[in-house]
Design a protein around this nucleic acid. Structure first.
Lengths: 347, 347
DNA sequence: TTGTATGCGTTATCAT
DNA sequence: ATGATAACGCATACAA
């Protein structure tokens, strides 16, 4: 019943040829007679021959696969990015091997180690939030492993970088809220340790400044776990809604913060956007459907994945040693509901 | 700068030993002197030696990796499932290679072919909606490739199956709509080729019957691409809303159908749930926040992935030829908004 | 035009 | 206790 996969050797034996002849015939070498070629190809097809990619990898010293390391696959941003990565990879004949760090440094190190041990030709990395020791990644660079970091990039590391313009995203989102009449705009951001957080908050601050509005530090807060835990967001919201200078709008700086602010408002029966405005960074499918006027800052996740993968494959295939590193910065998209947005009640 | 990865041979040369001695020393064989072992291990560590997994694969005829074939990674159900799969795989020392068919039969075949050609030890499959020819999968079975299908299983195929109780899900969802006062409940389902579609629709029909309601075939329709394409859903909705017997509620049988029905209603300014009720199968994060009364049928995606992966790895590691096949059926979860739902205007 | 031999990195089976 | 050799499947330099 279960039959072993057929090899070149089997074909050679069956056709009374040498393995090299078979190999060449299958690769359509010009030095094989038309007749032999036909016989070999016909038989190979009949027996459903497939070359063993592992043997090929060993010979060619390349695996035709790339590794992707993210913190959490079931995060819509990353799954969209992987979507783009997989598409590009498949166009170029590469497989995609995925690993997730779950924001855990140990898991990140071991996943990286495995991928590194020559089972992939290159690696796409979005570092986990807690990581501050990048010696492993540097080690990979020294080994000559082609690397591209995306989204969460680390400035001082020697590798290609693909990310969005977080500063501009934060700036424009805040401007959008101001334009819509909001006066007291709070900012709830992710872990203060991530550079993307810094950049978004800087954009927020500069937008306020450029509109002549004051920056109130009580209106800025951080969620260590990027809002992953509802209570984190709840605590921040509760504090802000209690204070003298109450926000009339929120800039939510991550997917989870956005949805958890919505959840908070729903539970507390705070109407969005009339009672409080909300503008979130989110890649979830539905955010634009959610409330009549919620706008969303989207990251071009799939596009980012595509670009990062292209860059990686280009690097792999031009095997020169790297001295310069590209940094691609994509624009965020301010996605606005087409239908008429209800204006907030301006005080 | 770029240094080649070190091999056993390099170690042997440096230490003036044979490769076999080095190999044995590294594997802590009892027939190697303590002294030699120490030298070898110390040197290997110093040089950061890692065995080449590809060479190992060739030798062992196993790759320690499993393939996952889904229609679309950036679909929250699948990304949650992959999340579970990756976790289990990593616990057992397996890599996960992903491929997406994009609901395209040709891509499914070629992806499967690649995975099949011995680059993975087993495959997890959720067949694409358009597929009706399963000869490839059967071919894999004959080749002895360990297979587990999940979510979208095909009844007559000889393989393990992990899925949710779609019948019950459809039944309870429909009952829920009936209980909320809806009288004309339509059903928009995925590809008619999928058994999950059949089952959900059967549950829908039986729920109507058991409430003494008639089944109107014009109220049931299918989307070949599972609603992936907006126009697909739009066409069905347009048709239904034009006919004499107009629905006052919709049972949407997939993630994408759910959101695209919502999008349609938004564009056409049809209010959910007062003008039309909606109950969808969805694993999106936000669906419960969406409208004041939308309930959602959730699939335990991550859990399903975990179970499927466990089953696959178990099958791989007990290499006996398969004669019996397990079928695991998980319950769906009817997720209901806690807050007061607005009742529909009952005619 | 075809065949033989070698090597990719590793381990297992023989020697010694 | 250690070494030489073959084998995994394939491609290719070198012979014939």
């Amino acid at each position: 019943m279960k039959y072993e996969a057929i090899t070149i050797k089997d074909i050679a034996k069956a056709l009374e040829l040498s393995t090299s002849t078979v190999s060449r015939a299958l690769r359509d070498s010009h030095e094989i007679s038309f007749e032999t070629k036909e016989r070999v190809i016909a038989y190979a097809k009949e027996m459903n021959y497939r070359p063993n990619p592992i043997a090929l990898s060993l010979k060619e010293k390349r695996s035709s696969s790339i590794g992707v390391l993210v913190s959490e696959i079931a995060n819509s941003f990353f799954s969209q990015a992987i979507n783009g990565i997989e598409s590009v990879a498949q166009e170029h004949g590469y497989n995609v091997i995925i690993a997730q760090s779950k924001e855990d440094y140990q898991r990140e190190v071991s996943a990286l180690n495995y991928l590194a041990s020559r089972s992939v030709d290159g690696i796409l990395i979005s570092v986990s939030a807690g990581t501050s020791d990048f010696s492993n990644i540097n080690e990979l660079y020294l080994r000559g492993m082609p690397l591209v970091s995306f989204d969460r990039v680390v400035d001082h590391l020697k590798m290609h970088k693909v990310k969005v313009d977080n500063y501009k995203g934060g700036y424009e989102a805040t401007k959008h809220l101001i334009k819509n009449g909001y006066k007291n705009i709070a900012c709830i951001a992710s872990s203060a340790y991530l550079s993307i957080t810094e950049e978004r908050v800087a954009g927020y601050k500069d937008a306020l400044k450029s509109s002549g509005m004051a920056i109130d530090e009580t209106m800025i807060d951080y969620c260590l776990h990027s809002g992953l835990i509802y209570e984190e967001v709840e605590a921040v919201m509760a504090r802000m809604m209690k204070q003298k200078n109450k926000p009339d709008a929120i800039l939510a700086c991550s997917d989870k913060i956005t949805t958890n602010v919505m959840r908070y408002c729903q539970i507390k029966k705070i109407k969005i956007p009339t009672k409080i405005g909300l503008l979130g960074f989110s890649n979830l499918d539905l955010t634009d459907l959610l409330t009549p006027s919620l706008s969303v800052v989207r990251q071009p996740a799939s596009e980012m994945g595509r670009i990062a993968a292209e860059l990686l494959i280009k690097t792999i295939e031009s095997k020169r040693a790297l001295t310069t590193f590209e940094e691609v910065i994509l624009p965020t998209e301010l996605f606005q509901r087409a239908s008429s947005a209800k204006k907030p009640k301006v005080k």
